[in-house]
Amino acid sequence: MKTVLTIVLFIVAAPLAGGLMAGLDRKAGAWMQSRVGPPLLQPFYDVAKLFSKQNIAVHKSQKYYVLCFLVFVILSGALFVAGQDLLLVIFALTLADVFLILGAYSVRSPYSYVGAERELVQMMAYEPMVIITAIGMYMVTKSFSVADIAAFEQNLFVKLPGIFIGLLFVLTGKLRKSPFDLSMSHHAHQEIVGGVLTEFSGAELAMVKIAYWYQNVFLLGLVCLFFASAFWLGVGAVMLTFFLEVFIDNNSARLTWQFTLASSWIAAAVLGMGNLVVLIFI
């Protein structure tokens, strides 16, 4: 029963939190650039307006992929808060992301096509580190279940600092922040227009945005898992991570996919594997 309540709470509250974070992101970004910036609730206004837009599409099948993207992002987040197997959560998120990419492929637009390719590179860059995170968490807690990992009495960060930093590294891309925002960007200077999102409009685009809110909440939840033994420390770490990502986003130019892929894989190997080696010998 408690699990059901948690899942319902997640489904209701996560988009609110995610939307607020998006607003905060823009506020903080504006503050760093000495602008006033939009109101905090602007992302909600944007999404609400998108739902009232004309229903246009290149092809009907793209709606299927977007719907699946949203549903499976919610599912992976729900599995996470329900304390299920961490690897299964990761796989569910992968499935969701694949749907978005397929949606971008299906429309045969040059910009969304390049976006899809880059999004794939980004996923490939990010995947090893995430699985290594699960490996590290298992090695410390002897469990794959998120519930057990969260209930672990020690602070995981103490045992897994390398993996934590490695995860932050790849998270930059996953949160769609510079310098790793290869496949799309909210900045206006994008050479591939909207990347994977180019051909999504109206309600579909709103669904993608909501899915991102869910996903961001879930990703920060993953960060929180490192500090689960002390709740307020976890909240602090999440906020710090968030502002760090916003800061990096505002202070760096986008890098090439080559650099993103190579540096992420190397970061996973050095930080992630290094941490695992240390874990075995202590």
Binding site: H59, I101, Y105, R108, V121, M123, P128
Partner: peptide, 23 residues
Amino acid sequence: IAYGSAATLFFWTKWMGKLITVK
């Protein structure tokens, strides 16, 4: 396996993408 799986993800998805491109 973690690294290899990331690679499998890449080549299967881009192939899928080719098949479903509507033209």
